[in-house]
Write a protein that binds this DNA or RNA. Structure first.
Lengths: 334, 334
DNA sequence: ATGAAAGCGCTAACAA
DNA sequence: TTGTTAGCGCTTTCAT
């Protein structure tokens, strides 16, 4: 039942080298034998083993993608984009959800190493420098998505988070808001810090002093986000606008507002970040800073593949631009 | 830089057979040499190649998952569940989004075959019997999620869609609704047909005649769903309740209602299906029939792994029960 | 308890 | 144009 290149060679009355050549289109084979061999191959339903061919030194045509959680819509979209672009190049994708757990991430890296993936795209946010260094030593091509590893020269694609934050802040400022609250995932990751910095800068450019009390950490879930947002809204001088560092938190903010009897956008304008599928689902639809998800995945794969093929010398850093999408969740201050 | 088993053997002053044995815990090795070899292995940062070991006849410890679209929250959740359970068994996961395109699916099957995956979990909805048959001939273990292939005996895990539909229908009937519209993805897939059949049965059990005009196909996107829902709501005798065959369509229904100036649930009660992350995000929060996503992924992997290990003789069909989650989108008919 | 040697299915010189 | 052959890194008898 299990066909090998020998079976094909036998059945076709040629050598395995000949079969190998027609499979790979290498060497010179007469049209006649090529056709014949091909015919025999599909008659036998023969599928060359990529395991064997990988062992021979060629690549495995496999890449790994580490991300915090595949069930998170943002990362699912990224993964889909990576899958699609990888597939165009003939690469299969191993998915590795790490739950932001460094140990789990390390185990996945180790596993990917043993599986001899051709490269790894790292979209996790808790990656330890040491882990990456080990991969680099092993000469495993790496591309970072929205990550920084200043000490290591690595290919990376990121969006200009500062600009995104600035766009969000400007939008709110232009609508007349002056008390603008900020809801962050955490303060560790650069992306978040930059988004906040951008928003604060937009406010300062409009002559609005930054009130630290209006910035809160909302975590990664709807519940923690709602709790943090509620804290923000029930303070002494409540904000009239909220910039959330991702769409999930923005929705948490909207829900918290509703619980406090506030209308969005009448009483509170809300801006999100990411433009995930969620943004168009909720009511009011969410004004948000769009990340070019497709493009992020695409460029990450492009960088990685160039690296794998050795077509590139230095490392590159692609910075993509975010775009503010205005929907229904923001309005001018009365 | 690239370490092989030979490097370890040399450095440890033993044979490669010995090294292999300590790696796999096979054969009898003295405690002394074992420790020594292990020490040498981590000093050299040696990671055994699973490519080579796979070629030797052992399994690749890799499974494939085909699904329509990884970016769809429902399938992302399924994928995450499969990934987690697979990881517990030591299996890595290849993701294959097919976009419901049979050709793409076939190419993925072919690719997975060449990569010599140990098994495939099929969560796509357009799988041709021929494709599956070819895999079966190749003796590749398969597990279906929410699929049927009556002619082929295959392991499968599914939820009782009929029951789910019945629960949704009963809920609406109990709330006093008698004109209940149904929004389906399509009529081809069994899941949808069963959900509808269940809902209709619940209505009939309450003495409500089925009005065919109240069933519409809403497709797979928010836009097509909204269009279909609008058609439903603007008919001569508009419904007071809507059962949508998935959460996305339910949200489309809510949006359509809102566009028509209807309040949910005051003027229209809406029930969804799947209980995806979306259900808690929207306002009003969605009453929906929950699928046990974790359990589906888990059992699919369990069945597949048993098959891979040859621990099972016959094929099994696991039927899981859905559960109605009542939230804010349904209310009693005034 | 350890090692020598024969594959696993394929690719890539090198011969013919 | 086609075939022979030596690996790729590992597992697994079978000797020792």
């Amino acid at each position: 039942m299990k066909r090998t290149i020998y079976d094909v060679a036998d059945a076709a009355g040629v050598s395995i080298a000949t079969v190998s050549k027609v499979i790979n289109g290498t060497g010179r084979i007469s049209d006649k034998t090529r056709k014949h061999v091909i015919a025999v191959m599909d008659r036998l339903q023969y599928k060359p083993s990529m395991v064997a061919s990988a062992l021979t030194g060629k690549s495995t045509y496999t890449i790994g993608l580490t991300l915090p959680d595949l069930a998170n819509p943002y990362f699912a979209e990224i993964a889909r984009a990576v899958e699609d672009r990888g597939h165009e190049y003939g690469f299969s994708l191993f998915i590795c959800s790490t739950d932001n757990d460094p140990e789990k991430e390390d185990r996945y890296f180790s596993l990917l190493t043993q599986k001899r993936v051709d490269g790894i795209i790292v979209a996790t946010r808790t990656t330890k420098e040491l882990f990456l260094k080990q991969l680099v030593q092993r000469k495993i091509p790496i591309a970072l998505i929205a990550g920084e590893m200043p000490s290591l020269a690595l290919d990376a694609v990121m969006v200009d988070d500062y600009l995104g934050g600035y766009q969000a802040g400007s939008h709110l400022v232009e609508l007349g808001h002056r008390r603008i609250a900020i809801l962050a995932e955490d303060m560790e990751h650069v992306s978040n810090r930059e988004r906040i910095r951008g928003c604060v800068q937009a406010m300062q450019d409009a002559g609005i002093a930054n009130d630290e009390a209006l910035t809160r950490v909302g975590g990664f879930s709807l519940d923690t986000g709602r709790a943090a947002a509620t804290g923000l809204l029930t303070g002494p001088e409540p904000p009239t606008a909220l910039f959330a560092c991702n769409d999930l938190l923005a929705i948490a903010g909207i829900q918290a507002a509703r619980e406090q009897g506030l209308q969005v956008p009448a009483d509170l304008s809300v801006v999100g970040f990411d433009n995930t599928i969620l943004a168009t689902m909720i009511d009011p639809s969410l004004t948000t800073v769009a990340q070019p998800t497709q493009e992020i995945g695409r460029q990450a794969v492009d960088l990685l593949v160039q690296e794998i093929r050795g077509e590139k010398t230095g490392k590159q850093r692609a910075v993509l631009l975010p775009e503010l999408i205005v929907r229904q969740s923001t309005a001018a201050l009365p």
